[in-house]
Design a protein around this nucleic acid. Sequence first.
DNA 1: ACTATCGGATAGTTACAGTATCCATGCTGA
DNA 2: TCAGCATGGATACTGTAACTATCCGATAGT
Lengths: 215, 215
Amino acid sequence: MRIAELSRRSGVPVPTIKYYLREGLLPAGELTSPNQARYSDDHLHRLRLVRAMVELGGLSIAAVREVLGALDDPEKSLHKAMGTISAAVAPADLGSEDEVAHEQVAAFLERQGWVCRPTSYAYKALVGVLATAREVGHERFADMLDGFAAAARPLAEADLGYVLGAGSKDEALEAVVVGTVLGDAAMAAVRALARRELSGVRQAEETPTQPCSNP
Amino acid sequence: MRIAELSRRSGVPVPTIKYYLREGLLPAGELTSPNQARYSDDHLHRLRLVRAMVELGGLSIAAVREVLGALDDPEKSLHKAMGTISAAVAPADLGSEDEVAHEQVAAFLERQGWVCRPTSYAYKALVGVLATAREVGHERFADMLDGFAAAARPLAEADLGYVLGAGSKDEALEAVVVGTVLGDAAMAAVRALARRELSGVRQAEETPTQPCSNP
DNA sequence: ACTATCGGATAGTTACAGTATCCATGCTGA
DNA sequence: TCAGCATGGATACTGTAACTATCCGATAGT
């Protein structure tokens, strides 16, 4: 197909597709003549993936490029891809440093029986969050960590299950991306639902409407 | 204190503080004369909160204003504050619509025994995510929802526990904000740690370093 | 042959989040 | 006391990110 059809089938304007091509988010089409190119279904699929990351995941173009680089890496270490994607999804700012926060993270890891180098991205991110919490006067925030861990275990199991259910290595890598980027968005929504349920706010509010299901 | 001290103690440049004042993220200082104002510790605290939301939470100025509006609302319904904050943290784009996605969400809610109107933000967000997943050829993604719910329950308990541990109504509202905004960042880090543990990647990588703890 | 479309390059636009400059006034230390 | 630096407030500017528009010569399909 040519660029107009790619645009029509994906819903992305032609100039934006050209922009993505320039930015290296899409591989160039196959040239049939010096100034005509043909695009495949792979291009369409990749384009949809890019839009999902940009629109739903809120990733920057640079972050998307990073993630796609991990996808296309011939080494294809699943583990490294996960790291790359976690870092790309997170905000660039890791927050401040703080000795107490450092100790809180170390104690937390010990409690959970988890091992991790203090140089890793996740470790530093966690220290940054705790340090920031202390800055705004929320020392108590560190108490939530074990609750987060209790939530993270089933989450990680769902993640892994999804990835292992993929047919091929390429599919597994893409499953990491989709599971992380869309998973974050879905998790935020499910979290809001769970909170709403737990806080017992089931009764109709100011606008009583038909509930969506009634067990 | 005056603006220079506010700047020094928060680490935020004076012009940025003026910008936040203009944007209504900070209340005006108490005027001691037509062109002199005094700022309190409350201003400092609020300023730190704003920076935490902007830098760690990645919220836009408009989203921060929204959240602060919920904080300052004299009605102070904890439940509504949660909704406002969940919506502010999420990306603006809800994704596409899709009949199948709609049904998947309804079935999921029924399985979980959760009740929720299809007009609510969380419901629509979830439909958007599933529709997008289907667009990129990941019908299987819906299978993760129950795993997400299993994770969301302890998460919501941690959230609620944190909020209920607050001393006053004002503190509880702020706990919602901190628990959500910093909680999201912390959860992303903990999720990455859990995934790393579960996938059994404990052995030192290319740069063998001292692990941070050794149970 | 002719006209719409294509690819590629370059330039322009919009929104956001600050920064910088001005100015009239206030405070402060020699 | 008064010179000079800081302040509050208004306005204008900057930089970056993510597109969007225009132009061009070269096909493609009829």
